[in-house]
């Protein structure tokens, strides 16, 4: 029995070690939940970290879950701010929306892929499963591995609407559930192609030019690169208190001026029509 007691005490000790520091955080005076799009989440995480480092006693709780889940969470009140990387549907229009940034949609391939530019209808045919070899695109004699997002994702929705139109994305395509995973898979497979948020493109993957136009801030602002979408913050009523402070912080010059470094377009840069 003594070994049993010892075990229990040890477990308790470990528990206390990790539990006590956590208790300290009870001194947090207010907390808000920000939930939704996994495309916006990585940025929101950074913003929240920065915001919290400036305002000691608050907690900004950033959740993924996806655009639809975020929209629902705001409607039901389980989140104070929703994040959506797709436009609201008819029955969701009662929410307040704030455009916090614009994002380009990049078509990415492996850096070793000799193909640098594609026409929009070529991209369409690739993702529809009609062009199946890079050879047909002046590339290597290899089969194309198409990587897409899952049904219901905001990024897939935007891609479907802006590139595919009425055509279906091929059933044979590999399906993954976040931008990061698509990027990771494309960075490892030399024959693959996928689409992700422009803000998340890094040097492990290569964004291709569409109809000869590279996805740069310049090209997106002037609408030469056509694939762009708004990043939205949503709230049930006019945002108040901490939620409002956080939204104002995100819209402040301090954050907005950093967006281009992170691959996003500041909200104020684009006026008029939000889409292409």
């Amino acid at each position: 029995m003594s070994s049993l007691n010892l075990t229990i005490w040890l477990l308790l000790l470990v528990f206390c070690f990790f539990a006590f520091p956590a208790c300290r955080s009870h001194s947090v005076s207010s907390e808000i939940v920000v939930a939704g799009s996994t495309s916006i989440q990585p940025f929101a995480d950074e913003w929240a970290e920065l915001f919290m480092s400036k305002n000691n006693k608050v907690n900004i709780n950033v959740q993924g879950g996806g655009s639809s889940a975020g929209i629902m969470a705001v409607k039901e009140g389980s989140a104070n701010i929703g994040m959506s990387s797709r436009e609201l549907k008819e029955d969701e229009r009662d929410l307040k929306e704030i455009i916090i940034a614009y994002d380009g949609l990049a078509i990415i391939v492996h850096p070793a892929n000799p193909v640098n530019s594609l026409a929009i209808d070529q991209v369409q045919s690739i993702f529809a499963g009609e062009i199946t070899s890079w050879k047909m695109l002046n590339g290597l004699d290899q089969n194309i591995t198409v990587v897409v997002r899952e049904e219901g994702s905001g990024t897939r929705g935007a891609f479907q609407e802006m590139v595919m139109g009425p055509r279906r994305i091929s059933k044979k395509a590999i399906v993954e559930d976040s931008n990061g995973v698509v990027r990771e898979i494309v960075s490892r497979d030399e024959n693959s192609i996928g689409f992700i948020s422009l803000g998340l493109v890094n040097d492990q993957v290569k964004p291709v030019a569409l109809d000869g136009v590279k996805p740069t801030e310049e090209a997106i602002v002037h609408n030469n690169y056509r694939l762009r979408r708004p990043f939205l913050f949503l709230s049930r009523q006019e945002p108040q208190g901490l939620a409002k402070e956080f939204i104002d912080f995100v819209l402040s010059a301090e954050i907005q001026s950093r967006l281009p470094q992170e691959g996003l377009i500041p909200a104020q840069k684009i006026t008029g029509d939000r889409r292409f």
Binding site: P21, A22, S25, H26, V28, E31, V33, D45, N59, N61, V62, Q63, G64, G65
Partner: peptide
């Protein structure tokens, strides 16, 4: 439980 990366402050935090 969600996937929020912050230190949980109560049993109601993600």
């Amino acid at each position: 439980a969600g996937s929020a990366l912050h230190l949980p402050s109560s049993i109601f935090s993600s």
